[in-house]
């Protein structure tokens, strides 16, 4: 067993895939130095042709990657901040994602878009703190949000090997997570397969990204009062609906905790599908950012917009009582 951090797991995945497959290369802003600590050391290992520092031209280099992918490469793009994905929504959702269908299956666009430090880092204010995974899931771009070091490794590897565009969000709140991991057992985690982090029998809590840790803490806190199952979808698109149904059909109760805006968010989709297809014995709840929120700067205001353990405890108690 070794102590593996989430950040090191991401780095290990990238190094392993670049070593395994010559067509994998990484590009982005300040990645040679590695300001996000994921690509640190890659330049020395793989050289400047496989570790490209780009000018501040997000739209240009995102479609550049599409072209390279169409020509047989497997680009990995690091985006320094999550809001840069708004700049390149056209290049991902309207170009890279649509080539396969529009060309009748002629084209493959195996690009991985990677955001180390998505969501709030606290104090980075309105334009650096978003968590836009729901946008990509909505348009059908494969979207994953690993919560543990082993899943960070496994989902990053799978994303790079996919023949389609995949966005991988590594929440800022997860980057510091460390687990005891047998390095020999690290392996690809398939997209579209959720996992139970902690079994329980009264309430299923679906936790996205760093809120897996929140949900585990809440499950501990409520032990003896309410038995909480912590279920992590890992992929938001494709989504493991049958895995969720297996849990919800056992517990009959559902709470979702999701660090993105409420209106049209992924939590709403999970609740709607559960209501349509699963055996709920009580109305489900969701704990999210407020509808249409813009994260304000001051600490108290930033935290006021983020879902937290206290809100989750309240929601779990409410559904357990219904």
């Amino acid at each position: 067993m070794a102590r593996l951090s989430y950040l090191k797991a991401l780095q290990r995945a990238l190094i392993d895939e670049m070593s395994r497959d010559e067509s994998v290369f990484v590009l982005g802003e300040d990645i040679r130095v590695g300001v996000n600590n994921v690509t640190t050391g890659l330049l020395a290992k793989f050289g400047p042709q496989r570790v490209l520092d780009t000018p501040l031209s997000e739209q240009g280099f995102t479609s550049f990657a599409t072209g390279a992918a169409l020509a047989g490469m497997r680009p990995v793009i690091e985006f320094q901040i999550p809001s840069l994905l708004f700049l390149v929504f056209e290049q991902i959702a309207n170009q890279a994602h649509k080539f396969s269908l529009m060309t009748g299956g002629q084209a493959r666009v195996p690009v991985t878009y990677f955001v180390p430090g998505s969501g709030s880092k606290t104090g980075w204010a309105g334009q650096h703190s978003d968590h836009p995974y729901g946008l990509f899931a909505h348009v059908g771009v494969k979207t994953v949000v690993p919560a543990t070091p082993a899943d960070a490794y496994g989902l990053f590897v799978s994303a790079i090997r996919e023949d389609d565009p995949v966005v991988i969000f590594a929440p800022a709140g997860s980057l510091g997570v460390r687990d005891d991991v047998d390095l020999e057992t690290l392996s690809a985690v398939p997209l579209g397969v959720g996992t139970i982090h902690r079994p329980g029998s009264d309430v299923t809590v679906v936790a996205v990204g760093h809120h897996v840790q929140t949900a585990l803490a809440v499950a501990d806190q409520l032990e003896g009062e309410i038995s909480v199952e912590v279920w992590d979808p890992r992929s938001l698109y494709p989504f493991d609906w049958s895995g969720l149904a297996e849990s919800v059909n056992r517990t009959g109760r559902l709470v979702v905790i999701d660090d993105s805006n409420r209106h049209c968010g992924i939590a709403g989709e999970i609740l709607a599908t559960a209501a349509e297809q699963m055996r709920l014995t009580a109305p489900p709840r969701r704990v999210t950012r407020p509808s249409g929120a813009v994260l304000p700067f001051a600490l108290a205001l930033d935290l006021a917009c983020q879902p937290d353990a206290e809100q989750l405890v309240t929601a779990v108690r409410e559904v357990a009582k219904d």
């Binding site: 550049f64 047989g72 170009q95």
Partner: peptide, 28 residues
Amino acid sequence: ADFSKGIFGANGIVGAGGAIATGAAWAF
């Protein structure tokens, strides 16, 4: 589009092809 002939597609967004062509040529 006809990828077997090197035709990486007409494109509905004005100016979108330039970066795609650049990335493909860089890959070559």
